[in-house]
Design a protein around this nucleic acid. Structure first.
Lengths: 326, 326
DNA sequence: GTGAAAGCGCTAACAA
DNA sequence: TTGTTAGCGCTTTCAC
């Protein structure tokens, strides 16, 4: 089923069919109707492969993220989608599973489709991936994080600063024996930066981390619960726990409540990300809104504007005290 | 940057370059090296658009799901990804936002790229969408649900039967005043089928639904909490609550525990889906594993095998009693 | 083992 | 307003 078939059925040239189906140029209402009728009758679906090759235009935007299971990324995608819905552009998602080599392959695959733009999560990539992004000749935006050396445009928050700010909030509230619960994966660059900023912030307040508990695997209530049990078992006099994610913090919260601990008096808790699903826990967890929806929007806006810039857009995360800090 | 550039740099024909880069046919080791070197030096990225047009092969599999925010679908995608990772095929995701017209457009867009297969969630589609799927000429698989009239191959569970089975389990455990909490959206076909099956199952046990509470919007702890407060406020003597989703059930669980209710004695709770993140709640919620990971795998296997069949694969959901039923 | 010619289905550019 | 021509970058096919 090709344009030619439709053209024959409608008794016009292929070019006229092409014009009608793309609403380009002037075509008489009568011809247009005949073409539409023929296309509909034949169930014609245009071949974008051929169209893209001929026009040298591909209305796709590659989006490379580590994972879809981490609730952070669907929110970024939602922001991207909102903006691209107003344009002819369509996002195409690829996942890197937190693996730089796989990310490189995914980026390569995407670029081989000659998309109109590329959005990649994070600033840490293989040299080859960085080279591809730099030479892609299309708008490329690195998202989520601004602490590093972007190859291209960049939209995100400073996770270092987010950690530092959290430390300041905690210190100002008089917590002194502070523990950290997070991922042991060095691949989780942003969580590592938050922890680093957090420790810096504590140092600036004359404090330091008393204990830390790390896990391998996925975040979850069970994970948060387990880490909390472990760290409090080891260091019972901690008066604050900072978690890499709200999900883990929620597990910790449930654990502490079950143990009858006074929150936020005896112990305070804070997480990161601000997930809407969690509204409805016994207490609202102190957290920081990571602005991921806006990050998606801003990145998509740069792509939609065909901006070949290297500008860095730094958004400010917002501290939400909730109920788990004094 | 085209094949021609690489060919010139390597001093061979375009055809030889093409063969080397696709590892097709016999090329001398020496020539192959020269070509690789040239390609690497130039940073050549093949143009899949042109390749696809010439070879009439597109190694993409379209996957159309309602939403990425609903944790159900990332699990299905993970199953699909696992299988396709063993093949040259790549999934491309599109979302319909629970809108039949949008779904139709997304399917149309996908088919216009001439993918090697198509996976679509659900059995309810516009007539045009059904026609496209029937005439796509590629393997098409409808997933999640088997209660209905598939156009193509189909892999899923019976949500009617899942609801019925849950009703049997509840009735067998002696619960008698039963409430349902779920979505008011008629677009959530599978939840509607579970409810319908649930009511049938209750009827078979000589019972009926005492009350129901519906919400518009997204599921979440807050939503579950709110529905639970409302339905128990209205009908305080309910002894069981069946939720459309574990997420809402979790909110209900937290609410009931706060009110000091005896679970599962005074009241029992059950949800649907079995989400791993929720392991770690104060009690394990009674639920049903929806087999979504396997559904993804089986669907992808049909695509990978290039199966142009209309077979229906019915998987069996598994009842998990947890701690919230007697 | 390598190359030349033709053409995939469409659109840009120009002609009528 | 409509049609004609050329060609996008690759792969298929066939020749050497």
């Amino acid at each position: 089923m090709t344009l030619r078939d439709v053209a024959e059925a409608a008794g016009v040239s292929e070019m006229t069919v092409s014009r009608v189906l793309r609403s380009r140029g002037d075509v008489s209402a009568q011809t247009r109707e005949r073409v539409f009728a023929a296309a509909r009758k034949l169930g014609y679906v245009p071949n974008k492969i051929a169209g893209a090759l001929a026009s040298n235009r591909v209305n796709l935007v590659g989006v490379v993220i580590p994972s879809l299971s981490n609730m952070v990324f669907p929110d970024v995608l939602a922001g991207i989608g909102e903006v691209l819905d107003e344009t002819p552009l369509q996002p195409v998602i690829g996942t890197s599973k937190y693996d730089d080599d796989l990310e490189e392959k995914v980026i390569y695959e995407m670029l081989s489709w000659r998309p109109s733009g590329l959005i990649v999560a994070g600033l840490e990539h293989s040299d080859a991936a960085r080279a591809m992004m730099a030479n892609a000749g299309i708008p490329v935006v690195e998202v989520m994080d601004v602490d590093g050396d972007p190859v291209a445009a960049c939209v995100g928050i400073s996770h270092l600063e987010a950690g530092r700010q959290m430390a300041r909030e905690i210190a100002a509230r008089g917590y002194r024996k502070i523990g950290y619960c997070g991922s042991s994966s060095i691949k989780d660059h942003r969580a590592q930066k938050r922890r680093q900023g957090f420790e810096q912030g504590l140092a600036e307040a004359g404090l330091s981390l008393t204990d830390a508990c790390l896990y391998a695997g996925t975040s979850g209530f069970g994970t948060g619960r387990g880490m909390t049990a472990e760290i409090l078992g080891r260091t019972p006099d901690l008066d604050f726990l900072y978690y890499n994610s709200d999900i883990n913090a929620a597990g910790g919260l449930l654990y502490c409540l079950e143990k009858g601990m006074d929150i936020p008096g005896r112990i305070g808790l804070a997480g990161f990300n601000s997930f809407e699903v969690l509204d409805g826990l016994p207490m609202r967890i102190a957290t920081m809104d990571s602005q991921r929806h806006d990050i998606g929007r801003r990145a998509a806006e740069l792509i939609a504007a065909n901006a070949l810039t290297n500008e860095v857009v730094t958004l400010a995360p917002v501290f939400l005290p909730g109920d788990t800090v004094r």
